[in-house]
Amino acid sequence: MRADLEIIQKWIPANSRVLDLGCGDGELLAWLQENRNVTGYGLEIDADNIAACIDKGVNVIEQNLDLGLGNFANDSFDVVVMTQALQVVHYPDKILQEMLRVGRTCIITFPNFAHWRCRWYLAHKGRMPVSDFLPYTWYNTPNIHFCTFTDFETLCSDMQMTVLDRLAVDHQYRQNVGNRIWPNLLGEIGIYRVTGANAR
């Protein structure tokens, strides 16, 4: 299983109802269905990914996250997951708000733009960072809302979210001493489990 999903699955209780935003090829839901008796849906807009979900027997709904989650009732899912999509959506704060409304807990992963390599690239070359992990140039990137760990934590606090778990990992989703001590400098990817201020 994809390394980030390996981490995330541990935070998803058995028998829970899960909504996976930008579910990709459905790997997480397929595994959870198989091993944790989880039910739920993946939202996706890429045709090949949708086909892959169908092949896996994952419930997939063709729905654009930028149009919101208005079709889902409050608290209708135990867990709402969004991996590597926060930086792609048009209104990250609004989608977070929606996730907190629809789900009791939310799991979010995103790339940390304050990682030392990004900082060095920008400082040294004076250009927007391009790497194997983030391979796009500024004008054709789907990533339109980069943030840092500190930015995200600030947003969490502004939105009165409670951070239940946080992990800073490298691009292979490994933890080490460095990214434990200086997450905003040495962590490449953030993995957060949050809940809304008014959650029970």
Binding site: T39, V60, I61, N71
Partner: peptide
Amino acid sequence: VDALMDAKKNVSYLE
């Protein structure tokens, strides 16, 4: 589709 999800049915939707 929304009704089916609300009713917790297995459903996939393509546009």
